[in-house]
Protein backbone atom coordinates (compact mmCIF):
# COMPACT_ATOMS: atom_id res chain seq x y z
CA UNK A 1 0.00 0.00 0.00
CA UNK A 2 2.63 2.49 1.13
CA UNK A 3 4.96 1.46 -1.70
CA UNK A 4 2.36 2.30 -4.28
CA UNK A 5 1.50 5.75 -2.95
CA UNK A 6 2.47 8.43 -5.42
CA UNK A 7 1.70 11.47 -3.26
CA UNK A 8 4.86 13.12 -2.02
CA UNK A 9 7.08 10.38 -3.44
CA UNK A 10 10.22 11.37 -5.28
CA UNK A 11 11.63 9.19 -8.02
CA UNK A 12 15.17 10.17 -8.97
CA UNK A 13 15.79 10.44 -12.67
CA UNK A 14 17.58 12.35 -15.36
CA UNK A 15 14.81 13.54 -17.67
CA UNK A 16 14.13 17.02 -19.00
CA UNK A 17 11.62 17.61 -16.20
CA UNK A 18 13.97 16.28 -13.52
CA UNK A 19 16.64 18.69 -14.58
CA UNK A 20 14.44 21.76 -14.40
CA UNK A 21 15.15 24.25 -11.65
CA UNK A 22 12.73 23.76 -8.73
CA UNK A 23 11.79 27.44 -9.01
CA UNK A 24 10.63 27.11 -12.59
CA UNK A 25 8.76 23.91 -11.78
CA UNK A 26 6.94 25.58 -8.89
CA UNK A 27 6.05 28.65 -10.95
CA UNK A 28 5.00 26.36 -13.79
CA UNK A 29 2.65 24.30 -11.65
CA UNK A 30 1.08 27.34 -9.98
CA UNK A 31 0.40 29.07 -13.29
CA UNK A 32 -0.85 25.81 -14.76
CA UNK A 33 -3.34 25.34 -11.92
CA UNK A 34 -4.77 28.80 -12.62
CA UNK A 35 -4.75 28.18 -16.38
CA UNK A 36 -6.76 24.98 -16.05
CA UNK A 37 -9.78 27.10 -15.15
CA UNK A 38 -9.58 28.93 -18.48
CA UNK A 39 -10.71 25.86 -20.35
CA UNK A 40 -14.41 25.65 -21.09
CA UNK A 41 -14.78 23.87 -24.41
CA UNK A 42 -14.09 20.39 -25.64
CA UNK A 43 -11.07 21.49 -27.68
CA UNK A 44 -9.54 23.40 -24.77
CA UNK A 45 -9.96 20.44 -22.41
CA UNK A 46 -8.44 18.18 -25.04
CA UNK A 47 -5.49 20.56 -25.26
CA UNK A 48 -5.02 20.50 -21.48
CA UNK A 49 -5.08 16.73 -21.42
CA UNK A 50 -2.67 16.47 -24.33
CA UNK A 51 -0.30 18.95 -22.72
CA UNK A 52 -0.34 17.03 -19.43
CA UNK A 53 0.37 13.74 -21.20
CA UNK A 54 3.24 15.43 -23.03
CA UNK A 55 4.69 16.65 -19.73
CA UNK A 56 4.46 13.15 -18.28
CA UNK A 57 6.19 11.85 -21.37
CA UNK A 58 8.97 14.43 -20.95
CA UNK A 59 9.46 13.35 -17.33
CA UNK A 60 9.88 9.67 -18.30
CA UNK A 61 7.66 8.65 -15.38
CA UNK A 62 5.78 5.49 -16.36
CA UNK A 63 2.15 6.40 -16.91
CA UNK A 64 0.97 3.05 -15.54
CA UNK A 65 2.82 3.73 -12.32
CA UNK A 66 1.27 7.17 -12.05
CA UNK A 67 -2.29 5.96 -12.66
CA UNK A 68 -1.82 2.94 -10.38
CA UNK A 69 -0.55 5.14 -7.56
CA UNK A 70 -3.40 7.59 -7.94
CA UNK A 71 -6.15 4.98 -7.53
CA UNK A 72 -7.75 6.63 -4.48
CA UNK A 73 -8.04 9.86 -6.48
CA UNK A 74 -9.44 7.96 -9.46
CA UNK A 75 -12.36 6.85 -7.29
CA UNK A 76 -13.04 10.45 -6.40
CA UNK A 77 -12.91 11.45 -10.05
CA UNK A 78 -15.24 8.61 -11.03
CA UNK A 79 -17.62 9.65 -8.27
CA UNK A 80 -17.83 13.29 -9.40
CA UNK A 81 -18.26 12.07 -12.97
CA UNK A 82 -21.26 9.95 -11.98
CA UNK A 83 -22.74 12.77 -9.92
CA UNK A 84 -22.69 15.07 -12.92
CA UNK A 85 -24.11 12.45 -15.25
CA UNK A 86 -27.08 11.64 -13.07
CA UNK A 87 -27.95 15.04 -11.70
CA UNK A 88 -27.45 17.48 -14.55
CA UNK A 89 -30.71 17.56 -16.47
CA UNK A 90 -30.06 19.84 -19.45
CA UNK A 91 -29.74 19.34 -23.17
CA UNK A 92 -31.02 16.43 -25.16
CA UNK A 93 -31.92 13.14 -23.57
CA UNK A 94 -29.29 10.64 -24.65
CA UNK A 95 -30.22 7.47 -22.85
CA UNK A 96 -33.05 6.22 -20.71
CA UNK A 97 -33.30 3.07 -18.62
CA UNK A 98 -36.19 3.04 -16.16
CA UNK A 99 -35.65 5.96 -13.81
CA UNK A 100 -32.10 6.56 -15.12
CA UNK A 101 -31.98 9.44 -17.54
CA UNK A 102 -28.70 10.69 -18.98
CA UNK A 103 -28.66 14.06 -20.69
CA UNK A 104 -26.12 15.46 -23.10
CA UNK A 105 -25.12 18.35 -20.87
CA UNK A 106 -24.63 16.00 -17.93
CA UNK A 107 -22.24 13.83 -19.90
CA UNK A 108 -20.36 16.87 -21.12
CA UNK A 109 -20.03 18.45 -17.66
CA UNK A 110 -19.03 15.10 -16.17
CA UNK A 111 -16.22 14.68 -18.65
CA UNK A 112 -15.05 18.30 -18.29
CA UNK A 113 -14.87 18.19 -14.53
CA UNK A 114 -13.12 14.81 -14.50
CA UNK A 115 -10.53 15.96 -16.99
CA UNK A 116 -9.93 19.13 -15.00
CA UNK A 117 -9.50 17.15 -11.81
CA UNK A 118 -7.29 14.55 -13.46
CA UNK A 119 -5.05 17.13 -15.08
CA UNK A 120 -4.57 19.00 -11.78
CA UNK A 121 -3.70 15.85 -9.86
CA UNK A 122 -1.34 14.58 -12.55
CA UNK A 123 0.56 17.84 -12.82
CA UNK A 124 1.02 18.33 -9.09
CA UNK A 125 2.06 14.69 -8.66
CA UNK A 126 4.54 15.17 -11.45
CA UNK A 127 6.08 18.06 -9.52
CA UNK A 128 6.68 15.98 -6.39
CA UNK A 129 7.69 12.90 -8.37
CA UNK A 130 10.46 14.68 -10.24
CA UNK A 131 11.67 17.10 -7.57
CA UNK A 132 13.28 15.99 -4.32
CA UNK A 133 11.56 17.47 -1.24
CA UNK A 134 14.73 19.32 -0.36
CA UNK A 135 14.83 20.99 -3.79
CA UNK A 136 11.21 22.02 -3.42
CA UNK A 137 12.15 23.58 -0.09
CA UNK A 138 15.07 25.41 -1.70
CA UNK A 139 12.88 26.63 -4.52
CA UNK A 140 10.20 27.85 -2.12
CA UNK A 141 12.77 29.64 0.01
CA UNK A 142 14.06 31.61 -2.96
CA UNK A 143 10.61 32.30 -4.37
CA UNK A 144 9.30 33.50 -1.02
CA UNK A 145 12.36 35.66 -0.41
CA UNK A 146 10.57 38.94 -1.23
CA UNK A 147 8.30 38.27 1.76
CA UNK A 148 11.30 38.92 4.02
CA UNK A 149 10.56 42.61 3.52
CA UNK A 150 7.37 42.19 5.52
CA UNK A 151 9.26 40.25 8.24
CA UNK A 152 8.00 36.86 7.14
CA UNK A 153 10.54 34.28 8.47
CA UNK A 154 11.30 32.67 5.11
CA UNK A 155 14.69 31.21 6.02
CA UNK A 156 13.44 29.77 9.31
CA UNK A 157 10.44 28.22 7.59
CA UNK A 158 12.64 26.60 4.95
CA UNK A 159 15.06 25.28 7.58
CA UNK A 160 12.16 23.88 9.59
CA UNK A 161 10.84 22.14 6.51
CA UNK A 162 14.18 20.64 5.57
CA UNK A 163 14.87 19.44 9.12
CA UNK A 164 11.41 17.85 9.33
CA UNK A 165 12.01 16.10 6.03
CA UNK A 166 15.39 14.94 7.22
CA UNK A 167 13.95 13.46 10.43
CA UNK A 168 10.93 11.67 8.95
CA UNK A 169 12.82 8.40 8.26
CA UNK A 170 14.59 8.62 11.62
CA UNK A 171 11.29 8.95 13.47
CA UNK A 172 9.73 6.20 11.35
CA UNK A 173 12.50 3.84 12.43
CA UNK A 174 12.01 4.92 15.99
CA UNK A 175 8.24 4.29 15.80
CA UNK A 176 8.92 0.83 14.47
CA UNK A 177 11.34 0.11 17.30
CA UNK A 178 8.94 1.36 19.97
CA UNK A 179 6.10 -0.61 18.39
CA UNK A 180 8.15 -3.79 18.57
CA UNK A 181 9.21 -3.05 22.14
CA UNK A 182 5.58 -2.57 23.18
CA UNK A 183 4.49 -5.68 21.30
CA UNK A 184 7.14 -7.62 23.18
CA UNK A 185 5.54 -6.35 26.38
CA UNK A 186 2.17 -7.71 25.29
CA UNK A 187 0.58 -4.58 23.86
CA UNK A 188 -1.83 -5.26 21.03
CA UNK A 189 -2.87 -2.56 18.58
CA UNK A 190 -4.30 -4.77 15.86
CA UNK A 191 -7.30 -6.22 17.65
CA UNK A 192 -10.03 -5.16 20.04
CA UNK A 193 -12.65 -2.46 19.73
CA UNK A 194 -11.94 0.93 18.22
CA UNK A 195 -11.63 2.44 21.68
CA UNK A 196 -9.17 -0.21 22.84
CA UNK A 197 -7.05 0.25 19.74
CA UNK A 198 -6.88 4.00 20.21
CA UNK A 199 -5.88 3.49 23.83
CA UNK A 200 -3.15 1.08 22.75
CA UNK A 201 -1.59 3.83 20.62
CA UNK A 202 -0.90 6.01 23.66
CA UNK A 203 2.04 3.92 24.96
CA UNK A 204 3.47 4.26 21.47
CA UNK A 205 3.10 8.01 21.18
CA UNK A 206 4.45 8.99 24.58
CA UNK A 207 7.95 7.52 24.13
CA UNK A 208 8.01 8.80 20.58
CA UNK A 209 7.31 12.36 21.75
CA UNK A 210 9.86 12.13 24.53
CA UNK A 211 12.55 11.01 22.14
CA UNK A 212 11.58 13.59 19.52
CA UNK A 213 12.04 16.36 22.08
CA UNK A 214 15.37 14.91 23.15
CA UNK A 215 16.49 14.80 19.52
CA UNK A 216 15.35 18.38 18.96
CA UNK A 217 17.38 19.54 21.92
CA UNK A 218 20.50 17.66 20.82
CA UNK A 219 20.13 18.99 17.31
CA UNK A 220 19.77 22.57 18.53
CA UNK A 221 22.99 22.25 20.54
CA UNK A 222 24.83 20.66 17.60
CA UNK A 223 23.65 23.47 15.32
CA UNK A 224 24.74 26.14 17.76
CA UNK A 225 28.18 24.60 18.11
CA UNK A 226 28.50 24.61 14.34
CA UNK A 227 27.93 28.33 14.32
CA UNK A 228 24.25 28.59 13.41
CA UNK A 229 22.98 32.11 14.18
CA UNK A 230 19.92 32.40 11.97
CA UNK A 231 19.76 33.39 8.33
CA UNK A 232 21.88 36.57 8.59
CA UNK A 233 25.22 36.38 6.79
CA UNK A 234 24.72 32.79 5.70
CA UNK A 235 25.85 31.53 2.32
CA UNK A 236 24.13 28.75 0.41
CA UNK A 237 25.70 25.43 -0.50
CA UNK A 238 22.81 24.37 -2.71
CA UNK A 239 22.89 26.61 -5.72
CA UNK A 240 19.92 26.86 -8.02
CA UNK A 241 20.66 27.23 -11.70
CA UNK A 242 18.20 28.68 -14.16
CA UNK A 243 19.07 27.60 -17.70
CA UNK A 244 17.53 27.36 -21.16
CA UNK A 245 15.35 24.43 -20.08
CA UNK A 246 13.54 26.52 -17.53
CA UNK A 247 12.90 29.38 -19.92
CA UNK A 248 11.74 26.92 -22.58
CA UNK A 249 9.32 25.21 -20.19
CA UNK A 250 7.74 28.51 -19.17
CA UNK A 251 7.53 29.69 -22.81
CA UNK A 252 5.75 26.48 -23.78
CA UNK A 253 3.34 27.02 -20.91
CA UNK A 254 2.73 30.58 -22.11
CA UNK A 255 1.98 29.28 -25.62
CA UNK A 256 -0.49 26.77 -24.19
CA UNK A 257 -2.23 29.52 -22.21
CA UNK A 258 -2.54 31.73 -25.29
CA UNK A 259 -3.95 28.76 -27.22
CA UNK A 260 -6.39 28.05 -24.40
CA UNK A 261 -7.57 31.64 -24.51
CA UNK A 262 -8.39 31.42 -28.21
CA UNK A 263 -9.98 27.98 -27.94
CA UNK A 264 -12.46 29.10 -25.31
CA UNK A 265 -16.00 28.54 -26.44
Amino acid sequence: MMEKMVFGRYIPGDSFVHRLDPRSKLIFVFIFIAAVFLANSTVSYALLLAFTLMSIFASKVRIGFLIGGLKPVMFLIAFTFLLHIFFTKEGDLLFELGFLKIYEEGLRQGIYISVRFLVLVLMTSLLTLTTSPISITDGLEVLLNPLKKVKFPVHELALMMSISLRFIPTLMDETDKILKAQLARGSDISSGTMKERIQAVVPLLVPLFVSAFKRAEDLAVAMEVRGYRGGEGRTRYRQLKWDWRDTTALLILLAVIVALWFLRG
Binding site: A222, G227, R234, T235, R238
Partner: peptide, 30 residues
Protein backbone atom coordinates in the same frame (compact mmCIF):
# COMPACT_ATOMS: atom_id res chain seq x y z
CA UNK B 1 32.67 19.33 18.33
CA UNK B 2 31.23 15.89 17.71
CA UNK B 3 28.51 14.57 19.99
CA UNK B 4 27.41 11.17 21.16
CA UNK B 5 24.30 10.45 19.11
CA UNK B 6 25.09 10.11 15.38
CA UNK B 7 21.49 10.80 14.34
CA UNK B 8 20.86 13.89 16.41
CA UNK B 9 23.66 15.99 14.96
CA UNK B 10 23.02 15.34 11.30
CA UNK B 11 21.43 18.56 10.05
CA UNK B 12 21.65 18.32 6.27
CA UNK B 13 19.54 16.19 3.96
CA UNK B 14 22.60 14.51 2.47
CA UNK B 15 26.21 13.94 3.47
CA UNK B 16 27.54 16.94 1.54
CA UNK B 17 24.83 19.28 2.83
CA UNK B 18 25.63 18.30 6.37
CA UNK B 19 29.35 18.90 5.95
CA UNK B 20 28.59 22.29 4.40
CA UNK B 21 26.33 23.37 7.26
CA UNK B 22 29.02 24.98 9.42
CA UNK B 23 30.54 26.60 6.32
CA UNK B 24 27.20 28.12 5.35
CA UNK B 25 26.81 29.47 8.87
CA UNK B 26 30.18 31.14 8.67
CA UNK B 27 29.47 32.75 5.32
CA UNK B 28 32.09 30.90 3.29
CA UNK B 29 31.60 31.59 -0.46
CA UNK B 30 30.17 28.79 -2.61
Amino acid sequence: MVFQNPDNQFVGATVQDDVAFALENNGIPF
